[in-house]
């Protein structure tokens, strides 16, 4: 069935790193149209690095990264801008522009690419801030927001231009339970109402199982699992089990 769906993001034999440091080594991955895919893995394993490569912020040293079947690896910045305009990235800590208000942050891409009229932009900002439950925050500066609010503004900024693809970097990590719940609900809502293609990076297993249509696990530069949440629970690979339930694994080894 999957084979009939269009592949939106493809990593083909991709090796990605920084200078002499190789972070992920010859990996393959596909995200299909309308799918929510989660990349699971411990901190520092290279999850953010993969997202940055998909955006073309860093270049892989081998292999291809295809967005809508276009290999973006040889692309110059100008062509990458076109590719990026189909995607929204929600950075780990929000990465809001400190010098701008919440409203200016949210409307940034709409204003820059002159996608529509100022009136419509205003309306859209209200709409998406409403969607993330931050109706009154428009005039605030990022410095005045809590961590959870920053992340929600970042989601609103991603949402505003109505992109086809969402990349989330650790959307719920480090939040209090209430914000954790809120943001997860928000993503479920996105999944239902926008039918967006989403690639979510996290080390939160529970959250991944709730959100994902399909999951990959990154371990020492390789994907050691690629499949559905159900398949993940039944997987017998020791490394996978160790990641899912470190406590049990630790006692079993003793």
């Amino acid at each position: 069935m999957k084979e009939n769906r269009e592949a939106i993001i493809q990593l083909i034999n991709a090796t990605i790193g920084y200078g002499d440091l190789t972070v992920v080594n010859h990996v393959d991955m596909v995200v299909y149209q309308g799918e929510t895919k989660v990349i699971l893995g411990p901190s520092g394993v290279g999850k953010s690095t993969i997202l940055k490569a998909i955006l073309g912020l860093i270049k892989p040293t081998t292999g291809e990264i295809r967005i809508h079947r276009e290999n973006i690896v040889p692309y110059q910045e100008r062509e990458l801008v076109r590719i990026r305009s189909q995607m929204a990235m929600v950075f780990q800590h929000g990465a809001l522009f400190d010098s701008m208000t919440v409203g200016e942050n949210v409307s940034y891409r709409l204003r820059e690419l002159e996608m529509t009229t100022p009136d419509k932009i205003d309306q859209r900002v209200d709409e998406v801030l409403n969607f993330v439950g931050l109706r009154g925050a428009r005039k605030l500066k990022p410095a005045q927001l809590s961590g959870g609010m920053r992340k929600r503004v970042a989601i609103a900024r991603g949402l505003a231009p109505d992109p086809e693809v969402f990349l989330f970097d650790e959307p719920t990590v480090g939040l209090d339970p209430i914000n954790h719940f809120n943001i997860e609900q928000l993503m479920l809502k996105l999944k239902k109402t926008q039918r967006a293609t989403m690639l979510i990076v996290t080390h939160d297993v529970e959250s991944a199982l709730r959100l994902a249509d399909s999951i990959v696990i990154l371990h020492e530069g390789q994907f050691i699992f690629d499949g559905t949440p159900t398949a993940l629970k039944e997987n017998q690979d020791m490394r996978v089990k160790a990641f899912l339930d470190p406590e049990k694994f630790a006692t079993a080894r003793e």
């Binding site: 912020l57 990026r84 900024r157």
Partner: peptide, 10 residues
Amino acid sequence: EQIDALRAEG
């Protein structure tokens, strides 16, 4: 990551 975000926003 604001510089990355700037590039990500085009």
